[in-house]
Amino acid sequence: MIEVDRLTKRYGNLKAVDDVSFQVEKGEILGFLGPNGAGKTTTMRILTCFLPATEGTARVAGFDVFENAMEVKRRIGYLPEHPPLYDEMTVDGYLKFVARIKSVAPEDLKRRLQEVKETVRIEGYGSKLIKHLSKGFKQRLGLAQALIHDPEVLILDEPTVGLDPNQIKEVRELIKSLSGNHTIILSTHILPEVSMTCQRVVIISDGKIVAVDTPENLTRQQQGAAHIYMEARGSDVELQRRLHEIEGVLSVVSKPLGEGEVSSYRIETELKQDVRGRIAQSVIEGGFELREFRSLQLSLEEVFTQLTTQEEVRSQ
């Protein structure tokens, strides 16, 4: 549905987007993850034909964003970082205006208005002035605006920023419910958002793509080794010796927990072989009291930090 090929955007000497390529399938939700200033907004602006790219191409539904901008614009609903609202208009007046400039047929206008208001749950607010709406409602109206012409592609720039936790939850559920019929790209710098709503993640840093994958794969791959967390009672020295004897254990870090002889252990093992069973067995056989045993997963947060800091090291 969306094909981005070697996209570059330069502002003077600064490369805001640098050789970015990725694809989005129909009905997919793609998360665009990166720190502030990484080039997320610029990429989205190019996709929505707001800005021209310096190099490279982008196609939406088969239409080039530069050559066939009108066709692309017809198929895209865009929620910019700041919802583009006119404070002095009413909710209905505003949505009608947007519907008209988005070429919604006059006979469909009323129905679409009703539908999007229901979708984003602002039914009772049609005659309210936009300036009197709360931040959360403004954000929803921003979404309604993007949905009004029932576009195939939705591009949402930080759709949950500035909302309270309940509103965030609502908006995320709304976005999820829209996938399938719509292809969605959403940008965020909040990691849980991506693992909660997106099927695939593009991590971007300093204008470059540093990773593209599913949230699960990313956390797994980046690990390189499996980690196990364990708590046990008994002689620390003895237990460490036993653990190191097991093949596949790479390192053990122990920390006394301060109640009797209880210590916590962080064990790094090779990914290829699962040694959890052998570790547990060895601990029990040694007569230690095993109090807790679980494998650790890197959070997306850690992956993100790893990827983006690696990038920095590489570029220096």
Partner: peptide, 14 residues
Amino acid sequence: RRATIELLLTSPLT
């Protein structure tokens, strides 16, 4: 100033 230009320029409006 109010960034509504983004709406106008990304709409199918010449």
